[in-house]
Amino acid sequence: MTDAKLSARNVSVFYGATRAIDDVSMDITRDEVVAFIGPSGCGKSTFLRTLNRMNDTVANARVEGTILLDGEDVYAPAMDVVELRARVGMVFQKPNPFAKSIYANVAYGPSIHGLARHRDDMDRIVEDALRRAGLWDEVKDRLDASGTTLSGGQQQRLCIARAIAVDPEVILMDEPCSALDPIATARIEELIHELRGRYAIVIVTHNMQQAARVSQRTAFFNLGRLVEFGATSDIFTNPVEERTKDYITGRYG
């Protein structure tokens, strides 16, 4: 696991007595986009949320196996979950900006981590993040407007800007386009292309075309198991597993 940014070893997740993820192992490198696909309830979102320990907030969730970020055990007692989540950012299915100004939305992460010493530093960080999220030109004149006044697609890019403002190493995206129209979706996909190489990106999607468009490698989940994980082109043109083939050709899902 030399160049793996994130690597999972025999990871299982339980909700109470129910096994939601069953013995999943995979490596994700620092400069690729990995897509998770699979039918609803296959565990792909659950697995995504175990990567930055967002499952900690669910009372009866339990994780077995190890997840390593740069070789550090994410679930080790010494791991500071706050630091972990700052290093592994997340974008959610439904855009969820804070009911604060656009500026405050982006500045929140840097301010709680004390990343800016002066107001000027902060201005630069906010502008930088908004530029990288492709939102700067649209909002530069109204940074004081509430984040909730933006359109859905803009809100989602604001959430991406918020995530990259703390300069994470990995960004997890949980079906980031499922609540957006096709034009906004295209804009986000373009953005993912631009962000590739700078951050390792993991994206969960329902939309197989999207997976094919944005990712280099694709993982197919079914019933809590990792069925197949390989180069996106292989998965979509020449899957090894019968189940993968059935799913991507639309037999079920």
């Binding site: 967002m54 907030t57 989540r85 997340m90 992460g109 959430c159």
Partner: peptide, 18 residues
């Protein structure tokens, strides 16, 4: 208060108190 706000803040590394 919608839970999505809590998720959003936790995901940038806010502590529960924050």
């Amino acid at each position: 208060v919608p839970p999505s706000i809590r998720d959003a803040a936790l995901a940038v590394g806010a502590t529960p108190v924050q």
